[in-house]
Design a binder for these strands. Structure first.
Length: 432
DNA sequence: AGCCTTTGACCAGCG
DNA sequence: TCGCTGGTCAAAGGC
């Protein structure tokens, strides 16, 4: 794969928040202060993660991104050029709905967090994923296959790239060399390095640009709390983890199993589980009174692909109905980590990833594997909590957090899974 | 009929 | 040990 391919993809990412005219604008990007939620490394946001001292600075990363400097001249160029009108954007299928009539929302993010502003029509909840990154697809994979990546035109643009934000700050920064409970240690330590190698150029570019351009970026934040090891090709995270999703429709079916008013949050938090029998993925969604999503936290990784005939997807209104689901399905399976070895380290850390439906076997096995493991889940969540909590929510823009647990089990399918519940479902001979 | 949402209760981790 | 808090359970009702 050539970086040439990356460029369009990431450029498109940039294109998502090219200017105030577009849906997104970059309002704040504090890359210098990263303390709290994973700040550590010195760089805020995901860039901060790169700032562990192990990774190059934003610009460096950029240069890495576009070694040849051919496709990507400069941030400014990228920004200015990566617009909906740009060939790249067009190629990618991007379209930037007019936000002129939409109120602009601004969120206050904690230092180090990339904040996106998003303009959208009133009442329009960010439920429509701009695009979903299929499970098992790594950033690199994305880069390799730009053609499979089709943002949903006309939808609130949320870019999966946001997902790297927290990832950089927490998983990486906090513990570049930290060995987490049991496993994932390797991944965590390498994560920083990998990132430094710019597995996520888009962010690097976009964030730095944001600063430079003093743009205001609006949109959801995707936070990856889990250390990730991208250094290994076979361990590349399924990009799906970063899938941006609209709470209601991201191509997967969700069942709400709880709702609660969380302290520190102005809005009630809803808890959802993926309805797939063996899928461990959960997500927490906070909506403002007007129904707009203010925060989305994903946890876990889909062990299946989005249902194609997803009946619910329909409501997603995915104008392109296809968008998310298809997108994901389009991802070449070959991109998914299938190497057993890879499994040992990270795939699980990325949520939303997926793989083939055939993982079914693994599914059942999955349940068995993790039962005994203690559940640091809460703690892990708390890790992010500070960040999330720190966000003064004047927010209107959804914050999307992709959370993965490090304490996952190693299954036959090469992924690590954590069981968080079991239930006998009617019609299903096997406990879910 | 099956699945989902609602919602109060319960459980577990932490200070 | 107790209270707080977040997460999950599970009954009831709705679609």
């Amino acid at each position: 794969m050539a970086f040439a391919n990356h460029v369009p993809l990431w450029a498109h990412a940039l294109g998502i928040f090219p200017s105030s005219r577009e849906l997104f604008s970059i309002s704040q990007f504090d890359s210098g202060n990263s303390s709290g939620g994973g700040g550590g490394g010195g760089g805020g946001g995901w860039l901060g993660g790169m700032g562990l001292g192990l990774s190059p600075g934003p610009m460096t990363m950029v240069s890495h991104l576009f070694p040849d400097g051919e496709d990507c001249k400069s941030f400014s160029q990228l920004l200015s050029g990566a617009t909906a009108a740009s060939p790249t954007a067009q190629y990618l299928g991007f379209s930037f709905p007019s936000a002129s009539s939409a109120p602009e929302r601004t969120a206050v993010l904690p230092p180090g967090e990339l904040r996106f502003k998003q303009s959208r029509p009133d009442g329009l909840a960010v439920t429509q994923p701009l695009f979903a990154i299929p499970p098992g697809l790594s950033p690199g994979a994305l880069l390799d296959s730009p053609g499979t990546f089709h943002p949903v035109p006309g939808h609130l643009g949320m870019s999966y790239q946001h997902g790297f934000l927290r990832m950089g700050t927490q998983g990486l920064q906090a513990q570049p060399h930290h060995v987490q409970s049991g496993y994932a240690s390797a991944s965590s330590s390498t994560a920083a390095l990998s990132l430094g190698r710019m597995q996520f150029p888009p962010f690097a570019v976009s964030t730095s640009m944001m600063n430079q351009q003093n743009l205001s970026l609006e949109g959801p934040k995707i936070i990856e709390s889990e250390p990730i090891d991208f250094s290994r090709p076979d361990q590349r995270p399924p990009v799906s983890s970063f899938a941006i999703d609209k709470p209601a429709d991201d191509g997967y079916n969700w069942r709400k199993y709880g709702q609660k008013q969380v302290k520190g949050s102005e809005f009630p938090r809803s808890y959802y589980k993926c309805t797939h029998p063996t899928c461990p993925v959960k997500k927490k969604v906070e909506r403002s009174l007007d129904g707009q999503i203010t925060e989305i936290i994903y946890k876990g990784q889909h062990n299946h692909q989005p249902p194609k005939g997803n009946k619910r997807a329909k409501d997603s209104g995915a104008a392109n109905g296809s968008s998310d689901v298809e997108e994901s399905s389009q991802i070449p399976l070959g991109l998914m980590p299938q190497d057993p070895e890879s499994s040992q380290v990270t795939p699980a850390q990325f949520s939303g990833t997926s793989d083939s439906e055939e993982v079914g076997d693994a599914d059942t096995g999955a349940d068995e594997g993790d039962e005994d493991e203690p559940e640091p889940k809460r703690r892990s969540m708390e890790v992010m909590a500070p960040d999330a909590g720190s966000v003064h929510r004047t927010i209107t823009e959804p914050k999307i957090i992709v959370q993965t647990t490090s304490e996952v089990d190693l299954l036959d399918d090469g992924y690590r899974w954590r069981k968080y519940g079991q239930k006998l479902v009617k019609g299903n001979p096997y406990p879910r």
